[in-house]
């Protein structure tokens, strides 16, 4: 068994280094288990976060192997949310840009608001104008109707 996992009776105690997993990640992982388990967060003398997990079922119904599996599931959930947090931070800017862009596309008047009229928003508006100009360009003459381009010529068989 891992040294950071202790099973006492019907309670699993997991010691978590907060430098590896921020408290937000521990909250998120704990939240997943709230419907089937009682969770208590505490702290040990090394300033590690202690997570006490106790099943809502009676002790007789749960084996030690199941308790170990439970601790493993919790640790997996920690990794899951730690990864989610990292990716959320990495993609924060692009998500904000996408939302701003969708708002501006629907209502360009919003840019008249002084609070929003910053350099970034102007850049997005310029990009939108470029896209619109590109849309109007038709170098391959795709937008010209067939009749207009070729007349009423039909291919003889």
């Amino acid at each position: 068994m891992e040294k950071n996992i202790t099973i006492t009776g019907n309670c699993v105690q997991i010691s978590i280094n907060p430098k590896l997993y921020p408290i937000e990640v521990i909250y998120s992982a704990s939240y997943v288990f709230l419907d089937k388990y009682y969770i208590l967060l505490d702290e040990d003398h090394k300033k590690n976060v202690l997570v006490h997990i106790k099943p809502k079922k009676n002790k007789s119904e749960i084996s030690e192997d199941e308790m170990e599996a439970l601790a493993g599931d919790f640790l997996n959930e920690l990794i899951n949310y730690a990864d989610y947090n990292v990716r959320a931070k990495q993609t924060q800017k692009i998500r904000e840009m996408l939302i701003q862009r969708s708002i501006i596309t629907n209502d360009p008047e919003i840019l008249k608001n002084d609070e929003l009229n910053d350099e970034e928003f102007n850049h997005i508006l310029d990009k939108l104008d470029e896209d619109y100009d590109e849309f109007l360009d038709d170098p391959k003459e795709i937008a010209i109707p067939w009749e207009e381009k070729y007349g009423n010529k039909t291919k003889d068989k």
Partner: peptide
Amino acid sequence: PNIEEEFVNYVLALTQT
């Protein structure tokens, strides 16, 4: 029977959300 543990879970859920 486990009202204290239910209370702790409730506080944790509110803290997280």
